[in-house]
Design a protein around this nucleic acid. Structure first.
Length: 272
DNA sequence: CCATATACCTGGCAGC
DNA sequence: TGCTGCCAGGTATATG
């Protein structure tokens, strides 16, 4: 489900309620991707100072300098629920606070809830250390993007997904950005000219910003913390549109597999 | 260092 | 209806 836009929409929907909230308890259900890394009682009485995002991670900064890192994996979503609302079989974390309960719903359990003593601690560095730059910040620039792509011989789609140059672009928005830039997903990253990389840079920023503005993509069940779904999927040019006419040239959209993931593209609009 | 495959886990859906 | 196989928004890890 969640790429950068969905995580950011979730963050925005939570920050008013969670900022300043006092944690009462943390309750975990079935195992997620990694263990919490600390006794849950260590979180009791801590206050949430800020709610930040790094790539697809949500970061709850606590008043003792510790950080609670949340990742939604493929099927995770967060919601605010009443304290008397019992968890279902796929609800694997409840963060009880004086401002309500933050609940993680994650059927596939690829998500994670990890405690780190600080952002510089080994636990945090292990998860965040290898991440690329934030696509919507100024640190993401055409020149550096082009330079970074020079050392990569893989197809550009897979380099975007890898997240070690620029974060936040997942399977939906990779196809969408490449369409908008007019670049064939199979093109080897290092062969792209500065001009074409600049177009891709702009396309990545625009598609992610548009998706955030539309509340993300709701393909099956994504909603923000208040249960509101996203609208981006209705604007998708290629993703999940196999056989449907290209919105620009009417050529049927094609699907292929790259690195075990589906890629959608238009052979006419993305010639190379 | 880089590139690719694999593993994790569950539910929904198409096809028989 | 029930079974089987395939597909799904991510990413650390192993292997070459």
């Amino acid at each position: 489900m969640p790429e950068l836009p969905e995580v950011e929409v979730t963050r925005l929907s939570l920050q008013g309620r969670l900022t300043g909230a006092r944690i009462q308890a943390l309750r975990l259900g079935k195992p997620l991707r990694w263990p919490l890394g600390v006794d849950p009682s260590a979180l009791a009485q801590r206050q949430v100072q800020t709610l930040a995002r790094r790539g697809k991670y949500l970061l709850l900064h606590l008043d003792d300098g510790a950080v609670l890192l949340l990742h939604l994996g493929m099927s995770g979503s967060l919601s605010l629920v009443q304290p008397d609302h019992p968890p279902g079989p796929h609800d694997h974390m409840d963060l009880l606070t004086d401002r309500g309960v933050l609940r993680l719903h994650d059927p596939r359990r690829f998500g994670a809830v990890v405690w780190a003593a600080s952002l510089q601690s080994p636990a945090a560095a292990k998860l965040l250390g290898g991440l690329g730059v934030e696509p919507l910040e100024d640190s993401f620039a055409p020149q550096m993007f082009h330079a970074a792509l020079k050392s990569r011989r893989s197809p550009i789609k897979q380099v975007l997904l890898a997240g070690d140059i620029v974060v936040g672009v997942g399977n939906i928005y990779a196809s969408e950005a490449l369409f908008r830039a007019g670049i064939r997903p199979t093109t080897r990253a290092h062969t792209l000219s500065l001009l074409r990389v600049t177009r891709l840079h702009d396309a990545v920023r625009q598609v992610l910003a548009q998706a955030v503005a539309l509340g993300g993509s709701t393909l099956r069940d994504f909603t923000d913390a208040h249960g509101v779904g996203g609208l981006f999927q209705a604007q998708a040019m290629v993703y999940d549109r196999l056989g449907e006419p290209c919105r620009i040239c009417a050529t049927p959209i094609r699907r292929m597999v790259q690195g075990q993931r589906a890629t959608y593209f238009c052979v006419q609009c993305q010639k190379r």
